[in-house]
Amino acid sequence: MAAGATGPDDTGPHRSGRQETPEERADRRWTDLLQEVRVAQTGSQVLFGFLLSVVFMPRFAQLDQFDRNLYVATVVLGALATGSLTAPAAYHRLLSGRRLKPQLVDAAARLVGVGLVLLALTIGSALLLLLREAVGGAAAGWITGAVMAYFAVCWLLLPMLHLRHRDGRDKRPPTG
């Protein structure tokens, strides 16, 4: 690892102590990214597959225009989430063997981040659509808002608080 390197994932002031070449680091980050994608991608694909079948259900014809538009938005979000979460495989297939692994990992990580946002939006809009039918408009909005706030806490706030806690701990002088 280059001296004085800065950036995410074991560089800069929060280095984990790993002694790895840039190639080894890229390989490790790629493996980690693939494990993360496997979790999100499965959920995205199952939800998207279910959404595709809804339009063929007899009850779909009875939806009002708002719910039909919400359904279309949900399906489009699901397609975009699935595309973003499967993009790392296409990147790898097209760029493999060209000595671009660090750039590949960075680009794929950004796409996975976008895919997670799109997946959260897909889940939120699917939940809103379902709850509008189950409990009515106002309650559906409040419940969906609460679920989306929970996602924001779990996926954004808690990781940021963890980093802030770690940053504060790292700035203290060593004890002992």
Rank of each mutant, 00 (worst) to 15 (best):
R15Q: 06
S16D: 05
S16L: 15
S16H: 14
S16F: 11
G17T: 03
G17S: 11
R18I: 07
Q19I: 07
Q19V: 08
T21G: 10
T21S: 15
P22H: 05
E23A: 14
E23R: 13
E23M: 11
E23F: 06
E24P: 00
E24V: 07
E24C: 04
E24S: 10
E24N: 12
A26F: 03
A26Q: 06
A26P: 03
D27K: 14
R28C: 02
R28Y: 05
W30D: 00
L33E: 01
Q35Y: 04
Q35R: 06
V37T: 07
R38E: 02
R38W: 07
V39Q: 05
Q41M: 08
Q41A: 07
T42V: 08
T42A: 11
T42P: 00
T42L: 04
G43T: 00
V46S: 02
G49A: 11
G49F: 10
F50W: 02
L51N: 08
L51R: 12
L51G: 10
L51K: 08
S53E: 06
S53M: 14
V55D: 01
V55I: 12
F56S: 11
F56D: 07
M57G: 11
M57R: 13
P58T: 07
P58S: 13
P58A: 12
R59K: 13
R59Q: 14
A61N: 07
A61P: 07
A61C: 01
Q62T: 12
L63T: 10
L63C: 05
D64W: 09
D64A: 07
Q65E: 15
R68A: 04
R68H: 10
R68T: 01
R68D: 03
N69D: 12
L70W: 03
Y71V: 00
V72K: 00
A73I: 14
